[in-house]
């Protein structure tokens, strides 16, 4: 039961990163890829109908951590207090920017909201990477679950590498999404950005896989059970395939392959962690595992029932929303005040 929840937990984070990853990435590259007010409106409309629903996957991932592994939720979130506060503030200004920009005419206001969108996207993309890399690596928590490090403990080379990888991955993901949603010149510019982002992404991915060998214990599970290597392998294949489709101009396929990369990267780490949720770098005995951090069997059972019914329903209506808004954002959409 705990193992099922552990996998579900990993899956929720993976879905969150796949979906909100493109929002965060697109927000980050938007000041560079847009040349005119018209372009900016397309970028905002490309995220408009989706970002809110995407963000709820984060809430759910957080909520499930709380419900299924309360102790891990408590220790993890208080240990990562400062980075989490930065992420929260950033997500707030991003959400507000997305909703308010179109409602204010002044140029100064619009520029301010554009800056909010940029920072509100860049900071979470980077910090989620730093946070997850640190989880993979283990953080200094003692047997009482008290964090014995500082903010700078988290900014170690491996953590920073993780942050850069996430940032680059999401920017690439966002550029592909813009390639789907935009038309004309903006579309070709988005594709140009995607092509430019791919080589550094490949380098970072390889570096990260190598550094993981030296900095973490993630590979232990894989060596013990080589069949699991399918997960990183799929991610790597996805990374190669996405470049192929990008060249061919098949943007949906390129995006889907990169979604496999994002999900594969997340699950690669999560599966490697098992049975730990939060390894302690001080002593293995202080690590939080799926057994010592889990909720009672009854709670896990009820939650599983809810999840098995609700998650497919949520996925179904979200797929409908993506299908419904699959079209390119046309100039006439912008002229007409459809999205208020």
């Amino acid at each position: 039961m705990e193992t099922i929840w552990f996998l579900l937990w990993g899956l929720l984070w993976a879905i969150y990163f796949v979906l909100d990853g493109f929002d965060l990435g697109l927000g980050t590259i938007s000041p560079f890829v847009t040349k005119s007010e018209e372009d900016k409106k397309v970028v905002y409309q490309a995220m408009g109908p989706f970002w809110d629903g995407n963000e709820v996957w984060l809430i759910t991932a957080g909520g499930v951590t709380f419900a299924a592994f309360p102790k891990a939720y408590a220790v993890l979130f208080s240990a990562l207090y400062s980075p989490l506060m930065f992420i929260l503030f950033a997500l707030i200004i991003r959400g507000v920017a997305l909703e308010y920009r179109g409602k204010m005419e002044g140029r100064g206001w619009r520029e301010a909201w554009d800056l909010c969108l940029f920072l509100g996207s860049l900071v979470p993309a980077l910090l989620f990477g730093v946070a997850f890399a640190n989880i993979f690596r283990g953080i200094p928590i003692d047997a009482e679950g008290v964090y014995r490090g500082t903010l700078f403990t988290l900014l170690n080379p491996y953590g920073l590498l993780g942050g850069l990888l996430f940032l680059c991955l999401f920017c690439y993901h966002g550029a592909l999404w813009l390639g789907i949603k935009a038309g004309g010149e903006l579309r070709s510019r988005a594709q140009k950005y995607a092509r430019a982002l791919w080589p550094p992404l490949l380098v970072l991915a390889v570096l990260f896989l190598v550094a993981t060998w030296f900095s973490t214990n993630l590979y232990a599970n894989y060596l013990e059970n080589p069949a699991l290597f399918i997960i990183p392998l799929l991610a790597v294949l996805g990374l190669l395939a996405t470049r192929w489709f990008l060249q061919a101009g098949a943007m949906w396929k390129a995006w889907a392959c990169n979604a496999v990369v994002v999900a594969g990267a997340t699950l690669f780490g999560v599966v490697g962690l098992y049975p730990n949720l939060l390894p302690s770098s001080l002593s293995p005995a202080a690590s939080l595992t799926v057994t010592n951090a889990a909720s009672s069997p009854l709670t896990l059972k009820i939650m599983l029932g809810v999840a098995l019914v609700m998650v497919p329903i949520v996925l179904a209506y979200q797929v409908w929303v993506y299908y419904y808004f699959r079209h390119q954002v046309k100039p006439e959409d912008l002229a007409y005040d459809e999205g208020y």
């Binding site: 709820v56 709380f66 419900a67 299924a68 709670t299 209506y317």
Partner: peptide
């Protein structure tokens, strides 16, 4: 959170899956 997560956390998680998704989407 560690003390009550078993109960309190599950209520919040259920809220997110049943209601929050629906309204936000």
């Amino acid at each position: 959170s560690a003390y009550v997560g078993d109960i309190f956390g599950s209520l919040l998680a259920i809220e997110a899956t049943i209601a929050f998704f629906l309204e936000s989407t």
